[in-house]
Design a protein around this nucleic acid. Structure first.
Lengths: 258, 258
DNA sequence: GATGCGCATATGTCTGGACAAATACAACAT
DNA sequence: ATGTTGTATTTGTCCAGACATATGCGCATC
């Protein structure tokens, strides 16, 4: 191991790249080639600093890039774990907002039917992201094309009990519930999960929507998750013959992932 | 200006946030409120370091966040210029491949049932992206969990006639049809469209899948589009009680939206 | 007025260092 | 076998400092 030379200020010897960029390229190639297998831990920062004859800060900059590209996750006390051998994203679907994502028509009209506290059974708990036996608030409502127009879907919204002081505001709230709840949460929505199923439309919902008995439904279940847990989980029951869920997926340029 | 106190190691006094996060919140609010107008330069790093009684590194971390969120651009020799008063945060769902996107299980087993040329009627033409009256090749098949296992779904694939010289290879092809067809196309797949519906399972498909009469389906229609037009459009008919389509959507940092 | 030079300024890169926080694991007690 | 404690390890936060690079501006010269 050669002795450390004098300070290599902004070392751009090779390809004119900063040192951290050179290191990140080398490490990226190693990840792609499987030198560091998926699931394994990469060498610690200090070891890499020795290998590349650089400061820990320079190594951290390179590893930051790898994390941003989705190759690794980094955890204090654990190390840098390889989670992928490929760079993130050749196709992506991007949305400016969750409303756009979930194709919530802005100009529709939502009416709260009733609000009650329920105890989650096992199956519902699994779907909404709570625990069986917990109290949650259930808000039932119908979304309409416009006041006095046609019903679009029946909506069951499950909200954790800790937001019961917010629930009074829901009927008068303009916009989706999750945006109101997010303001009272202990952090922003980090993830949304949507599940789509074909299910028989429950008879009581059929009646509300003016459907014949035996009708079916495209059911959309959406969970909005903050660091503190599920913010709200809603089941949208759309009449099967009135709903198609459409997704457009575009190929990225490389820039999109950077 | 008070003297610098002893080292405030990982100062999380207020909300338990690291110092750089507290600073970035303050700066973000100033940006939103227009304290730093769009087009203007924010105070230099060293000035902010004095104001917040922090090191330049801590300030840089906060400014990095603002850059990632799209509020500012930073240029050596110039400074930190405000380019937006709103965050560029978006949600996105990204995929390494179209297989992953469409949740095609890699280890399933696909059997071609028959291949024929059909003339598109108006409705089918609209769905597959062709014209009524056109000749297209229809490949019918069933996807199985494994040879001799359980049927997963019935698949109708519509392929433009210009690929009829490729169709012979489809039964023996490992992997999704679109990847084989893409190789014979005049350009890469630029976009994929997926539509999801709840529909009655056609009786002939019910029989193939071992379902009772009157069964329903979660139907997934996928179109793969190149510059030269639709490459292939497939209808996947999943038994309703055996399929949920699940999407996980994450909040980006600046990277994916760029 | 146009061009070039020198200097000041501001961010970019990199070093070394210190302490905090989170995790993993071994040893020990029950 | 299970739980607790202590220690080692690793990343996260933050500091101070130094030099490089890019930009902007003022001034001198043609």
């Amino acid at each position: 191991m050669t002795a450390r030379e004098e300070r290599p200020a902004a070392d751009r010897a090779g390809e004119g790249l900063p040192r951290y960029a050179q290191i990140q390229k080398i490490l990226e190639e190693r990840l792609i080639e499987g030198v560091y297998p998926i699931g394994s831990l990469m060498p610690p920062e200090l070891e890499l600093a020795v290998e590349f004859n650089s400061s820990r800060t320079t190594i951290r900059e390179a590893l930051r890039y790898l994390r941003e590209r989705g190759y690794v996750e980094r955890r204090q006390g654990v190390g840098t774990r390889v989670i992928s051998a490929t760079s993130r994203s050749t196709f992506f679907q991007s949305f400016g907002s969750l409303e756009e994502l979930f194709q919530v028509a802005v100009e529709t009209y939502y009416v709260v039917m009733d609000v009650k506290t329920v105890v989650l059974d096992q199956e519902t708990a699994e779907l909404v992201g709570g625990l069986a036996g917990e109290d949650w608030i259930l808000v039932n409502g119908v979304r309409w094309t416009e006041p006095g127009g046609k019903p679009i879907c029946y909506i069951q919204s499950y909200i954790p009990k800790r937001f019961e002081h917010v629930v009074d505001q829901l009927p008068d709230h303009e916009g989706p519930f999750f945006s109101l709840l997010e303001r009272h949460a202990d952090g922003p929505i980090e993830e949304a999960v949507q599940e789509i199923r074909a299910l028989p439309m429950p008879p009581e919902f059929s009646r509300q929507l003016g459907l014949k008995p035996g009708a079916w439904s495209l059911q959309l279940l959406r969970r909005y998750v903050t660091e503190g847990g599920v913010l709200i989980a809603s089941f949208n029951w759309h009449p099967a013959d009135q709903m198609a869920y459409v997704m457009h997926i575009h190929r990225t340029r490389e820039a999109a992932a950077d």
